[in-house]
Amino acid sequence: MKFKASFTDDGISLLDKRFLPAIDKVGRVCHVYLTPTHAMLLHNLLGSTGPEGDGPQCVAQFAKDLLFREYNVSSRDGNRVAFSVDVALLHRAIRSALAVHAQSPADGDAPAAIQVKLVNKQTPGSRSAAPFLTFETKGARSAVVQDVPISKPLSRSDVARLQDALDAAQELPETLVQVPDLQQLQNLVDRLKNIGDLLSVTVTQYGDLHLQVSTSLVTVGSEFKRLRILGARANAPVVDQNVSATIRMEMAVERGEALSVQVSMKHLVKSLQCHLAKPDCTFYGIAPNGACLTVIFQYFIPGTRLTDKSISFYCRLPVLDPGTS
């Protein structure tokens, strides 16, 4: 089992400035999954084995060329490697590698790329070798090697489960609506979470997103209308605008033009931390049969409005009540 690669400048700054801060907020420990074509950071894909239980699934997938040059990964399991790592440690190593790297190089020399590889080594005081992700950085005056401890590589069966979970997540919601301002949504949810722990989310084919918390004493909801729609759409029926949002949503669900699910407020708050990765667009949708609430983050190729297909970033929130399935 081998892995060795050099970071691209864009790739490492993407991890440092955007993805690792977001991934760290979603959960302390994540899986790193490397395949011959992609590198991924994953949360909660193997179910409730981790310390954080059945939190939201979060997938950040990068085409290998976006993050790395000279990317080599090999294993007896179809050249796939997966392990878990403490996100804060990984981020710290990357930040300090960048700091060393930023030392101005001698005239005319381009700085050497930051290298990362998988090693198995014995640390002082321990009897057996342990796996590490090692970062090697050469600055103008110093060279630094950092070892980030990682878990033992995942077994063949666990890697297969990881891949199965990823494949299962490919099923897209029929309708996705674009939330214009994620920060604003976060402000709203920060206040909503004082009111209750369970949130019903409804997405209609008319471009409405409705969030509602109900307890025995209070019902509070927030409705976003006329959002941009991807996928199946329908014309909103002419309904008296004075009919409450709750009733309008129920009617849309009855007509089969909306799906509604209940999710944990805690999960939603966590998934909203993904805005730290500064996506260009965010879409909400409910997977067929109300299987989960899907949040898809989209990135544009810098300077264009074209989707950057080399990044795929999404969250899937487990549904507490199948709702309209």
Partner: peptide, 8 residues
């Protein structure tokens, strides 16, 4: 296009 509602 955006509405918040509450019933207490």
């Amino acid at each position: 296009d955006a509405c918040i509602h509450a019933e207490i």
